[in-house]
Every structure is written in structure tokens, then in C-alpha cells.
């Protein structure tokens, strides 16, 4: 779903990647960013839904502003060699362990794809994902719209 969040006035700036793929792909993308030094804000396995029960998964990562390479003008998906967001810093061991444990859970189960979900449920699933991400987003400085 489109973010109902806007960046607060004096909060770190944010980018949002939408992953092409399922929840497992989101976790893999998060792992890759963790390898580059981004840290998890929250536990990747939030919610009491199993991989075959909830098609959506969102991961919030952060690092110090000067290494984030984020600005409204820059598109972080281009020119990766120049963008500080892609500069490799030492990975945070705690984030690494958590994301690998989450990947183990997802690899051991059938992963539900949004395409496999009836519309009425998709709406609910998306809303629940948003609700469970509320606290991490709030604490990271995003204000609910």
C-alpha cells in the first residue's frame, strides 16, 4: 500500500523500497542492506502471523544521517557507487542474527503471495501490516497522516 506516513519536519529523511516479490524477498532485501551496515529498528518477525497467513512484510532499517545518503532529490536506486547509502559499513551482529533467523522461518514455510489472497482479505492483511508497523515508524520519526 502507499505510505500513509509523511516525514516529520525535523526527523531523519526516509526512503521506501517496494520489493518485487513476496515477503521472503523483502527479508532478503533487508538482509542485503544489513550486510551494508543498515540496522534493524524492529524485530523482523512482528505479528503473530505465519508466512503462509500474511502476504505482507515490511522492514524498517536505519543508520546515522551522514551515512544514509538520503535526500528528497536523490533517487537512491541509481548511481549506487556514488551514493553513501550503499557504502559498506560493518554489519550490526544483532541485526544480522535476527534477519537470518527470520529467513530460516520463511524458508521453512510456504510463503503466501498477495496474488493468492482474495481481495477482501488482502485489504485486511495490508491494514494489519500497517498497524503492526505503527510503533516502529512512530519511534523512527514518521508521523501518521
Amino acid at each position: 500500500m502507499q505510505a500513509n506516513f509523511t516525514a516529520g519536519a525535523d526527523t531523519p529523511k526516509q526512503i521506501c523500497f517496494f520489493c518485487d516479490g513476496d515477503a521472503l524477498q523483502v527479508l532478503v532485501a533487508a538482509r542485503d542492506l544489513i550486510h551494508m551496515g543498515w540496522k534493524l529498528v524492529h524485530h523482523p518477525l512482528y505479528g503473530n502471523y505465519r508466512p503462509h497467513q500474511q502476504p505482507y512484510r515490511s522492514i524498517l532499517l536505519q543508520r546515522e544521517a551522514e551515512n544514509s545518503g538520503l535526500s528528497h532529490e536523490q533517487n537512491p536506486t541509481q548511481d549506487q557507487s556514488l551514493n553513501p547509502a550503499y557504502q559498506c559499513l560493518a554489519p550490526d551482529p544483532a541485526s544480522l542474527q535476527l534477519i537470518e533467523a527470520a529467513l530460516d522461518v520463511y524458508r521453512a514455510d510456504r510463503v503466501l503471495n498477495p496474488q493468492q489472497v482474495p481481495d477482501v482479505m488482502l485489504r485486511d492483511c495490508s491494514q494489519l501490516d500497517y498497524e503492526l508497523m505503527r510503533l516502529p515508524l512512530e519511534q523512527a520519526g514518521w508521523e501518521a497522516a
Binding site: 559498506c88 559499513l89 560493518a90 554489519p91 551482529p93 544480522l96 542474527q97
Partner: peptide, 8 residues
């Protein structure tokens, strides 16, 4: 058997 990764 956890191994702490070495710094880069």
C-alpha cells in the same frame, strides 16, 4: 556455536 564476525 556463534562466531562474532570480524570487523571489515
Amino acid at each position: 556455536d556463534r562466531v562474532t564476525p570480524r570487523p571489515g
